[in-house]
């Protein structure tokens, strides 16, 4: 018996969200008294895969068939099912990222196993197998009991604080037994905005809204994000008028994020925006309108013009970094 975790890499490094999922899998395995095993498909750096030992994974199965590099949800699902059978896994952990959302429901059906979509805590085994998740766009939590023998847990990124140990995982080559005909999704082109930090994985996000008055005023947002090693985001109206790319839009119809720190400048905090960010651990709001509803959801606030406050904040943070080192 084992807990299996699905691993993704980007630029030959295991994704941060996958490392978290691996840590979650090994903690779950400890609760169940079994081992945690990872499955990686397509191109990965095996040295990087071996580092999953640092979060408690004992073994990584690696099918290096490069056909897996095209994101084909059906083929990946078959491969995860094959690996699950090989290691007799009772729990399957998948990070609920953009890709994870496309795979986990398929895996759930294929393995006839109940799924928790967007888990935020380790399973509670005191009475059945119960996992907590956010519902109603972060306004409430639900405890979900999984009733099937096998369980799929789709883990919300930034939900667990991983602990690192000194250990190395054994990387084993593995064949999921897929034929070329199993791959039916063809990637015809990629438009990549390179060098940016993944919004859903970022620990700090700096976001701008209509209060910034125009796309030419985004310099301070980007400068602050750069200093903090943060991702940049925006509100819906800003994406709608193309001041910023749609891929930065957080909120109900955009991305849902839960960074450790969310800094919102010139965003009033409409309920649709809050729905996408209220899982953030700490929220800072900068707005010239003291009555902006966002202050009610914030931990820290500055009433002031973002154009003036943001450059000061960049300087203050630079000074802090200089004095800390």
């Amino acid at each position: 018996m084992s807990v299996i975790v699905y691993i993704e890499s980007i630029d030959n490094k295991v994704k941060k969200s996958s490392v978290e999922a691996a840590f979650y899998a090994s903690e779950t395995a400890k609760l169940l008294g079994i081992e945690a095993i990872a499955i990686a498909l397509g191109t990965h750096d095996t040295n990087e895969l071996a580092k999953l030992g640092n979060v408690g994974v004992s073994k990584v199965l690696h099918d290096s068939n490069t056909k897996f590099d095209q994101f084909d949800t059906r083929a990946i699902t078959k491969a995860i099912a094959a690996a699950t059978a090989q290691v007799d896994a009772s729990v399957i952990v998948i990070s609920y990222t953009q890709n994870g959302k496309a795979i986990a429901p398929r895996v759930s059906v294929r393995l006839q196993s109940g799924m928790v979509a967007g888990a935020i805590a380790l399973p509670d085994l005191s009475n059945g197998f119960v996992v907590r998740k956010n519902v109603f766009s972060g306004k409430a939590m639900a405890n979900v009991e999984v009733l099937t023998p096998k369980k799929v847990i789709a883990l919300t990124p930034n939900s667990v604080q991983k602990v690192i140990c000194e250990s190395t995982a054994v990387v084993e080559s593995f064949s999921a037994g897929l034929a070329d005909a199993d791959f039916t999704t063809l990637v015809k082109g990629v438009e990549k905005v390179s060098g940016t930090i993944s919004l859903t994985e970022a620990e700090i996000v700096v976001s701008g809204g209509r209060g910034l008055k125009g796309p030419e005023n985004w310099g301070p947002i980007e400068a602050l994000a750069k200093e903090l090693g943060a991702a940049t985001a925006c509100s819906r109206p800003v994406a709608d008028v193309h001041w910023r790319p749609h891929g930065e839009h957080v909120g109900q119809t955009g991305f849902t994020i839960r960074p450790n720190l969310y800094i919102a400048a010139g965003i009033s905090g409409a309920i649709q925006h809050l729905a996408g960010v209220n899982g953030s651990k700490v929220i800072v709001v900068i707005n010239s309108d003291a009555e902006a509803p966002f202050f009610k959801a914030a931990d820290y606030g500055i009433v002031g013009d973002a154009q003036v406050v943001l450059p000061k904040l960049v300087e203050a943070y630079k000074n802090f970094k200089a004095s800390a080192h």
């Binding site: 109940g114 928790v116 409430a140 405890n143 979900v144 009991e145 009610k296 914030a298 820290y300």
Partner: peptide
């Protein structure tokens, strides 16, 4: 395959500093 056993509301934020 699953059942929600209970709900709870997200904790209220303390006042903004």
């Amino acid at each position: 395959y699953t059942k929600i056993t209970s709900f709870d509301l997200a904790p209220q934020k303390t006042a903004c500093k």
